[in-house]
């Protein structure tokens, strides 16, 4: 077990290295000089040269062979764009926004909890609905209930998430007025963040009204973001339940006279859970990329809307830092999902 744990944790290092290299490479294949792109038409040749120097773009891409030869110092070899970038990355420096000049890391610290809160609620909504509907479909296999559930499941992965968000706002905010269309709290309320998760912070500060308000703001965006996950979880629950319900131990339990509900919940459902957890973990990761679209529409101040705005403003350091960060979170999440199998299914031993 310990060896597996260590191997799995060390195994993410080459992938993380590759991801950082990929993001670096993508930003170096830009056909135009970034300094020119940032300054636009306003830039003079001199200001472009200055900015390029500030951004380290005048350095060689990988190895400064010239610098090494002329100075004779081995360290000079690594005075390049790539190694500077990696050095900065290891010290947690992701550069500064072109627009606001604020360090990317600082904005991430403020915005990530908002995205986490949204993603957690989405996965809760998606899992609860998906598992319940999936179990119901499996128990009613072949009936119209099952057919209806399968249609919901295939529809759920067919909606464009940004469109679902728009339609939900139109129906439930504009027409019915049930839920707020944007933001995390009423504009008049002020909250001193502790964890950055407003649902928890409001409770910590004893602001119960604000707690309900933050939940109220979460419903629509979390549902919009969670539909895709719900559909995937529902399908996986259904097929996994169908598989388990056929097993001998389920038949044995039933024939021993164990009540049907206990058979379903204790014997079947627990054993059907492992593949469902995999899908939940993977969906949680893709929620982070769906958040770019959903957060922008609900004006949710998370990492997603931040990347969205950066795209429209061509704020490269923010896009680069944001993408890198989301990918890193995704890699770590996948690892945690793998490790969680041991806790859920005692038959799995590494």
């Amino acid at each position: 077990m310990t060896t597996y744990l260590i191997r799995r944790v060390l195994g993410i290092i080459p992938v993380l290295l590759g991801v950082t290299f990929m993001v670096f490479a993508i930003n170096r294949i830009v056909p135009s000089n970034p300094a020119v792109a940032i300054l636009g038409d306003k830039g003079t040749v001199e200001s472009q040269r200055q900015l390029a120097e500030e951004l380290g773009l005048n350095k060689p891409v990988f190895f400064d062979v010239e610098g090494y030869r002329s100075s004779g110092r081995f360290g000079r070899l690594f005075d390049s764009q790539y190694f500077t970038y990696m050095g900065e990355l290891l010290t947690g420096n992701l550069g500064k926004s072109f627009m606001t000049r604020a360090p990317v890391t600082d904005s991430l610290k403020v915005r990530f909890p908002a995205t986490m809160e949204l993603a957690i609620f989405s996965i809760i909504i998606g899992s609860v609905l998906g598992i319940v509907l999936g179990v119901v479909a499996a128990l009613r296999r072949g009936t119209w209930v099952d057919t209806g559930m399968l249609f919901i499941a295939v529809s759920g992965v067919s909606f464009p998430v940004f469109w679902t968000a728009i339609v939900l706002i139109y129906l439930f905010s504009v027409q019915l007025g049930w839920f707020p269309p944007a933001g995390r709290l009423n504009v008049t309320s002020t909250l001193q963040p502790v964890t950055g998760l407003f649902v928890i912070d409001t409770l910590l500060r004893g602001q119960y009204k604000m707690f309900l308000d933050s939940l109220h703001h979460l419903v629509l965006p979390a549902f919009a973001l969670g539909t895709h996950a719900m559909a995937l979880i529902m399908r996986m629950t259904r097929s996994s339940m169908l598989d388990v319900l056929r097993r001998d131990y389920v038949r044995t339990a039933s024939s021993k006279g164990v009540p049907p509900l206990v058979v379903v919940m204790k014997h079947a459902f627990r054993n059907a859970l492992v593949p469902v957890i995999t899908v939940m973990g993977l969906s949680f990761g893709s929620l982070l990329s769906g958040a770019i679209l959903v957060e922008a529409i609900f004006n949710w101040p998370g990492v997603g809307s931040w990347i969205f705005n950066a795209i429209t403003q061509r704020d490269y350091p923010v896009i680069q830092g944001g993408v890198l960060f989301v990918a890193a979170v995704f890699i770590v999440l996948n690892m945690l999902v793998d490790l969680s199998y041991v806790l859920i299914d005692p038959r799995i031993r590494y």
């Binding site: 991801v19 893709s286 795209i311 989301v326 990918a327 995704f330």
Partner: peptide, 19 residues
């Protein structure tokens, strides 16, 4: 594995934003 480490359309966003 590196390509798969980018969830959803994130990699496409990064590529198009640069290109």
């Amino acid at each position: 594995d590196i390509l798969l480490a980018f969830p959803g359309i994130l990699l496409a966003i990064a590529i198009v934003a640069a290109l």
